[in-house]
Amino acid sequence: MSPRWKPNPDVRTGRHVVHHLHAHLVFVTRYRRKAMTGEMLTRCEEIMREVCEDFEAELKQFNGEEDHVHLLVHYPPKVQLSKLVNSLKGVSARLLRKDYDAHVRQHLWGGHFWSSSYFAGSCGGAPLTVVRQYIDNQQHPV
């Protein structure tokens, strides 16, 4: 590394890759039922942090309401986002049902906690217009 270059701690390096991948994830409770309490959200964040660590990812931000949660995850390129999501939803559902069984049974039924769908959006880095402009301005050999 050049001594003039200040490394960005969010830009990670691997053996053959330099990456800076972030995803905004949103999970909604089944039937959009208001099943989450403040205590459950705190526990959910702990669970999801542990799952992310297992995938060598980092949960940068977490918050939610009674019927959904938002996550900002920094993950390596070797991780399939769909597998990370399945693990986040599966592990958290199982442990939240176990820890708060009586409360969850009042709001949800049928063995499900999260809706089967989710939102995933890529984020971070330059806006799309800037990236397009940068690519367009590359010097194409004649």
Rank of each mutant, 00 (worst) to 15 (best):
S2F: 04
P3G: 08
P3I: 14
P3T: 14
P3F: 11
K6C: 07
P7G: 06
N8A: 04
V11M: 03
R15L: 08
V17A: 07
V18W: 00
H19Y: 15
H20D: 11
H22D: 04
A23G: 11
F27I: 06
V28Y: 01
V28F: 01
T29M: 04
T29R: 02
R30S: 04
R32M: 03
K34A: 13
A35K: 02
A35G: 07
T37L: 05
M40Q: 08
M40I: 14
L41K: 00
E45Y: 01
I47S: 04
M48L: 12
R49P: 10
E50Y: 04
V51G: 07
E53F: 02
F55V: 12
A57H: 06
L59A: 01
K60E: 15
Q61K: 06
F62W: 07
G64N: 09
E65Q: 14
E65K: 12
V69H: 01
V69M: 02
H70M: 09
H70R: 07
P77Y: 02
P77I: 03
K78P: 01
Q80V: 14
S82H: 05
K83S: 13
L84R: 10
L84Y: 08
L84C: 11
V85E: 03
V85H: 03
V85P: 08
N86F: 06
N86D: 13
N86S: 14
L88Q: 09
K89V: 13
S92L: 09
A93S: 15
R94G: 07
R97K: 14
Y100G: 09
Y100F: 15
D101E: 10
A102S: 11
H103D: 08
V104P: 09
V104Y: 01
H107D: 02
W109S: 13
W114N: 06
W114T: 06
S117W: 03
S117I: 08
Y118M: 09
G121L: 09
S122Q: 04
G124R: 13
G125C: 06
A126D: 06
P127T: 05
N137T: 15
Q139C: 05
H140D: 12
